[in-house]
Design a protein around this nucleic acid. Structure first.
Lengths: 253, 253
DNA sequence: AAGTGGTCTAGACCACCTC
DNA sequence: AGGTGGTCTAGACCACTTG
């Protein structure tokens, strides 16, 4: 019989579109340039807007595009390398990492964090909010959970909340001896408040970096940092930071 | 004046849906259980299927759900922690990391890789394919790029391709002295072949781990590993592996 | 006010898996 | 064959930014 499936495996339109656009981006557009609007692009390629959007979504996920409501779609610069745990072990807030303490409250952490801290499920802990800015753009938001037992001598005189409180808590934390840390990275989506702080919409993809700080066998603190996945490349260099490289796409489609 | 915006910021339906489903998942479903199909869920919540799908997409991104065409949507188990660069520096393939060499060819690497290797743009390099399996599931696919200069004594007698060739190349590579390495993690999307190897659809979100291996100041090899972002949590422990923790969502919405 | 991307709908058909 | 998720369409309206 004849039907030998010549044109088999028809790849989805949006995927093909992604490839075409990706190549156009490489050759015909400069960083920062704004693309034609979605309705026009869709018409130009002869597809529905939803299909075109599916392709754009992919490219945004890969850090190639940046879309802003009311403004347009622009060609994104290469991802910025952000150092995570730059060198050896160090307490958060020691030295000048890129972080900036914002606030500090006393509140019950999420269950997962309580479990890591080995505190009672509803027990309040010091919660330091920090944010990180790189090249003028917010790249990460962090919540640092520090149980009272890790800052035993915290003077009650300091402000009960606010930036000064945050710094006081960190200062006390540094008095402990750091014995080790333990990091993990996973994909997540930005909650409403994270999204606002990162200047993204809720649900935006983020890289969630969970760090546990150990002292005397116990977990002295837990950091939960969310990095903008579209603009950041997390680096764990043993040596200094390195040259740019372009595009997370691994192999041709 | 009166209009104090009581019910302002109406969050999108799909986002609200995501929250509702997420809570239902916590309380009413067991891992592995299959959910009602999309058409029924959409009807039950009184939304279009596309809207429901947007919510499911979010939950899948967060590793809470697993969807398989022709089968259904199931509740995903907690993400597995996958050790990346478990302890200190080591050549890839030395000792028993979770990797398994699959193949080896001689081909021109992507431009970005050539730049890191400091080889000419179209110069072919040894390209070792490896795959990693955890708990019976494929979790990562890797391409290891090794320029000829890093394996000078590679005997021409060995098979020119295939698994044995891959092992021979790695064996030769290990003869060099490893001076350091440099890692970065970013979000990407699976290419067609990666997708197949990871048992996902093209475009599936992956965590791309780029590792450079240094020797005598040069880059001796580059590894480009793509991990399934939905099922994996990358761990960079200084200590042994740790307990599960649940859910990458950082804060309540 | 006009233009952008973001959300949502109600359909249709397709690819894949299981029985 | 029947059921599932995946793709695609052609519209509508909304939220946001900018002149």
């Amino acid at each position: 019989m004849g039907t030998t499936q010549l044109e088999s495996v028809p790849e989805p339109k949006y995927w093909h579109l992604r490839t075409v656009l990706s190549e156009a981006l490489d050759s015909e557009f400069a960083v920062g340039e704004i693309l034609p609007n979605e309705r026009e692009l869709a018409a130009r390629f002869g597809v529905a807007r939803a299909t075109l959007r599916q392709a754009l979504e992919q490219l945004e996920l890969e850090g190639r595009l940046q879309r802003r409501r009311g403004v347009g779609t622009t060609v994104a610069p290469p991802r910025v390398g952000v150092a995570v745990g730059p060198s050896g072990h160090a307490w958060p807030g020691a030295g000048d990492d890129g972080w900036q303490a914002v606030d500090c409250t006393l509140a019950a952490p999420p269950g997962a964090v309580a479990r890591m801290l080995e505190t009672a499920p509803q027990e309040p802990v010091h919660t330091v909010r920090r944010s990180r800015v790189s090249h003028g753009q917010p790249v990460a938001a962090e919540l640092l959970y520090i149980p009272a037992s890790s800052v035993p001598d915290l003077s009650a005189i300091d402000a009960p909340t606010g930036t000064t409180r945050a710094r006081a808590v960190l200062r006390e934390l540094h008095r402990q001896t750091l014995e080790g840390q333990d990091r993990s990275v996973e994909l997540g989506s930005a909650g409403a408040d994270d999204a606002k702080e990162l200047d993204r919409l809720p649900g935006a993809p983020v890289l969630v970096v969970t760090t546990r700080f150990f002292t005397e066998g116990r977990t002295a603190a837990v950091s939960l940092a969310t990095y903008r996945a579209d603009t950041c490349r997390l680096t764990f260099g043993d040596s200094g930071s390195v040259e740019i490289h372009h595009g997370p796409e691994t192999r041709a489609s």
